[in-house]
Structure formats: structure tokens, C-alpha cells
């Protein structure tokens, strides 16, 4: 279930600048407002804000509350290798190291702040092909630019991949378009 807040109403945000540009000033203002209200009353369940990371707004037409929006942001997911994941494979895939490393989503610190996320919060990632729920952690310093997410290869990244390989034998496994929903 989405954590939702009151009163953002209808926002119309345009696409602003580069792919990694953070959300527009309108979006920032809205996010700030969202964060403040979330802190003051996290259980308020009134509206659903739909704000893609590049500034696009998405309403949920099937929502029982037509004027409400859900907190969904668009990102590009880069699954990849980590040395900890590699060590985890050696220890055993059912052991703690591998399971922890492949079930942890890295988010850019600026995105964490804008989305009001703290380490350990759970989000739902949805691609065209699947869905997965995963806890988040802030990426180290400047390792990850805003707008990108990183996760170690594993079950979660596989769930978000499609089966089509476009005649190459290789499913598109990096640079996946995903929507992030705060749970």
C-alpha cells in the first residue's frame, strides 16, 4: 500500500533538461512539502502523488479517488556485479551474504532525500515485465548519479527482466526502465 499524503492536487510538470537532472523546482517544492507532511503525520492517507523522476506526472486513473495520486517515480535500474555478491556466491547462494547483497537497492543520496527515503525503507520496483519489493540504501557518495538505481545481480534483477533477447540471446539486463513506489 502506498504511503500517501494530502493536498498536492493537479500538478503539471514538464521534462527539464538532462536525463540526470533532478526534478523541477515544482517537483522539489512538492517533494519538500510531501516530506514535511510525511514527517508530521506519516499515517495520513489522503492523496497519491505520481511524479516521475524526470518530471513527468502520472495519475492513477483506476484509483477510487480520482483526484488522488500515488508516489511513483521513474528510474533507470542498472544491475551489476559487486565483489560482495561474488563472495556470497562462494559462500553459498542461500547464505546471508548473497541474499543481503542481491536484495538491497542502492539509490543516489539526492534521490533518497527527495523521495523522503531512509535506509531500510522498502520500495516496490515495477518494470514492463515484473515486480519486486526491496529495501533501499543510499549509494556511497557520488557513485550513483540521480535518476539511476543499482542492484547486484540476483533474483530481484531477474524478476524485472523480460524474456525477449531481440535476436541476440541476451535479455536486456542493464538500463531497465522501472517505476519506484514507496511502500
Amino acid at each position: 500500500m502506498c504511503r500517501v499524503i494530502a493536498g498536492l492536487g493537479k500538478l503539471h510538470l514538464g521534462y527539464h533538461g538532462n536525463w540526470w537532472a533532478t526534478t523541477s523546482h515544482l517537483a522539489r517544492a512538492s517533494r519538500k512539502s510531501y516530506n514535511q507532511r510525511r514527517k508530521s503525520n506519516p499515517n495520513t492517507l489522503v492523496d497519491k502523488t505520481s511524479m516521475s523522476h524526470n518530471g513527468r506526472l502520472r495519475t492513477h486513473q483506476d484509483s477510487p479517488h480520482s483526484d488522488l495520486f500515488c508516489m511513483v517515480a521513474s528510474f533507470i535500474l542498472i544491475p551489476g556485479r559487486t565483489s560482495r555478491q561474488g563472495c556470497g556466491i562462494n559462500e553459498g547462494k542461500f547464505n546471508e551474504t548473497y541474499q543481503q547483497e542481491t536484495h538491497l537497492l542502492q539509490v543516489a543520496p539526492s534521490d533518497m532525500e527527495q523521495l523522503g527515503l531512509t535506509a531500510g525503507d522498502t520500495v516496490r520496483l515495477t518494470s514492463d515485465f515484473g515486480q519486486a519489493e526491496v529495501p533501499v540504501i543510499a549509494a556511497k557518495r557520488d557513485e550513483l548519479p540521480a535518476g539511476l538505481l543499482f542492484i547486484a545481480y540476483g533474483d530481484i534483477s531477474s524478476r524485472l527482466m523480460g524474456g525477449d533477447t531481440h535476436g541476440s540471446g541476451m535479455p536486456t539486463s542493464k538500463g531497465l526502465d522501472v517505476e519506484l513506489e514507496i511502500l
Binding site: 534483477s157 524474456g163 535479455p171
Partner: peptide
């Protein structure tokens, strides 16, 4: 993923861990 193979022999790899969901 297309559901063509009716049997398989997997040697030293883990497709159930890293293939796409339809393939798995």
C-alpha cells in the same frame, strides 16, 4: 523463455538464479 526445450542439462551455472522470469 519461449517454452521450447522439453529437457535440459545445466552444468556449472545457475539459470534459476539469474535468467529472466519466463525462462525460469
Amino acid at each position: 523463455a519461449r517454452g521450447e526445450a522439453d529437457a535440459a542439462m545445466i552444468i556449472a551455472s545457475d539459470p534459476m538464479g539469474n535468467f529472466s522470469q519466463p525462462a525460469r
